[in-house]
Design a protein around this nucleic acid. Structure first.
Lengths: 346, 346
DNA sequence: AACGTTATTGGTAACGTTACCATCAGTAGA
DNA sequence: TCTACTGATGGTAACGTTACCAATAACGTT
């Protein structure tokens, strides 16, 4: 069942059918109606591969996802996906394995699928170059990705928070509540990855508040409940008398909180918990988790609009520093505050 | 940059390049090496649209998602997606709007994208027919969907739990713990939808345990924390002295639990909470939620294998009734049990 | 009547790839 | 020497669509 069959059935030329399908203005109303009827009757649907082949670019928008362990992206994938669907494009999703090269993968992805635009969720694009971007000529939007700073900013768009200062704000908030024994659970110490950046924010907050960092306060874990639960237990086992814990994602904060509660300790009376991401779960944990909001809804909304504009060449690339704010809930409390000098009296 | 350019650069014919790309055996090792080198050098990636056009079927596997409100599917989409990627197929995701006709949508989706196979997550396919399925000739796997019973089962695959009996087991479990004032929060009473089916299971359990159902015990809410929170509060406002609540999804159970805890009531001492789905979060809520597991990991795993087999025509369509089991955690407790006769004494 | 104009339609070469058949050299068997 | 076969390669017609140009009819204008 193809356009020829329809043309034959309707007694017109294929080009006329094509015009009908594509809503071209100059086709007689009677003809259009007849053709549409036949299409309906015969259950005809145009072949996308052929269309995409003929029109050099496709109507596919790619969503590239690095790793699937971070549930913070799950909502974005779905909601951006739905937004893209609603403006008439198709979504091709590519889940890149953890150990694969992201830059190479997106270039191949774009070329192979002749993508019209690409959204990257996460990933690290350190070996991307201006030349590669120019070659593919496709609007790319990086969301929460690490992009090589040597690339010309007019060649791509990005939405990202400032991980270092957002984490700094979060930990500084704990300090201002009087905490000085603040543990951290992060996903890794690689300077350029999200875990590393947020860890740097933690260090900076300690420094500004004249608190000495001790490596015992640090535990690693991936972005899962399980790993954070395990990491928190390790921290608790060290008997450090922590009064607060900062986890670099809400999932991890909840895993940590569960570990604390399971030991019969109270939140926030015994230990305060600070998360990051402000996912839905956090507001409905008990006690609800104080966390860092990064305006996920805003990102989703703006992404779809930006993509549409970029495709239609109605706007330039944007680099948006997503603002963050601390959402104060039930898991953090004020404690007696010691000045550095008082501290010495004990 | 196309196959012709490569052929010219390598000094061979396009057909030879094609053979190299497709790993055809009869091409000289030296030639193959040279061609591959040129491909690498020139950054050539075959055009998928052209390939899909030429080979009648594409290498696209569709994932059809009905509604995105149900977070239970999020993990499935990602993990099945990753599995599909890893066996060499591409994923095209289609998020169908709530009010759209699912049957019509999948047929169009299959034809337009020339899908090789399709996975449907949720959705209701009541007006699908044998003829339509035969026409598209594509293996379809329905996961947790409602499919018209008039369709020949050899034409499609399905993975689904028995919603009525799984809900029955859950509520019966509460009854056996001694509960008789059991509230329910469900998503709707439409007999054929998931919410309606699970509600029927609830009714059956009450009946078997000789408990009279009262409509006051029922509140509606969609699959979100917010709605369940609101619904639970309405239930509590009625002063029914409920000792247990059954929510038809874990997200809803957690929303309800939060409402209970926020009022200063205890779980399970004052009210027991039973969920459904066994999502990750349920184990890490505090108290952890007793729920109905439906072997999501198993479904994901088997889906990928089944799709592969169906595509390669190495197996027949399967209809798997996914077994469910109750995961006993912290949110339900045993209470004093009254026999019906004793009840009258008060 | 001859002409230009407009509205509608038809015909057909691409788009990039693969499947198929044709070709050709080299080798072995008779 | 002729034939048959094998291994490697080349040539080319599709796949279904759209963009472009050509053709036609209908009409008004001169």
């Amino acid at each position: 069942m193809n356009i020829k069959d329809i043309a034959a059935a309707a007694g017109v030329a294929v080009s006329t059918v094509s015009r009908v399908i594509n809503n071209h203005p100059d086709v007689n109303e009677a003809t259009r109606k007849k053709v549409l009827e036949i299409i309906e009757d015969l259950n005809y649907v145009p072949n996308n591969s052929a269309r995409n082949l003929k029109r050099i670019v496709s109507n596919n928008i790619g969503i590239f996802v690095k790793g699937i362990y971070n549930p913070y992206f799950a909502k974005m994938i779905q909601e951006i996906g739905q937004g893209i669907n609603s403006i008439g494009y198709s979504i091709i999703t590519h889940y890149n394995p953890d150990d694969a090269n992201d830059s190479a993968a997106i270039i191949e992805f774009i070329k192979e699928k002749r993508l019209r635009a690409l959204v990257c969720l996460g990933g690290e694009f350190e070996d991307l170059t201006d030349d590669l971007l120019k070659e593919v000529e496709v609007p790319i939007l990086f969301i929460s990705s690490i992009v090589s700073s040597s690339i010309d900013e007019s060649l791509y768009s990005s939405f990202a928070i400032d991980n270092i200062s957002a984490a700094y704000e979060a930990v500084n908030y704990l300090c201002r509540l009087g905490h000085s024994k603040i543990g951290i659970i992060t996903s890794g110490s690689n300077d350029n990855r999200i875990g590393g950046l947020r860890f740097r924010g933690y260090l900076k907050a300690l420094e500004v508040n004249e608190i000495t960092y001790h490596p015992d306060y640090l535990e690693y874990g991936l972005y899962t409940f399980e790993e954070a639960y395990r990491a928190m237990n390790k921290l608790l086992d060290k008997k450090l008398e922590l009064t607060a814990i900062f986890a670099i994602s809400d999932i991890m904060a909840i895993g940590a909180a569960k570990a604390i509660l399971d030991r019969g300790l109270r939140i926030p009376e015994d230990i305060s918990v600070m998360g990051f991401d402000d996912i839905d779960y956090s507001a409905y944990f008990h006690p609800s988790i104080t966390t860092v909001n990064q305006m996920e809804g805003e990102i989703i909304h703006r992404s779809v609009i930006l993509l549409k504009d970029l495709i239609n060449k109605e706007g330039n690339h944007q680099h948006v520093r997503i603002p963050t704010k601390i959402i104060d809930r039930q898991s953090c409390r004020q404690i007696r505050r010691f000045k550095k000098s008082e501290d010495l009296l004990f």
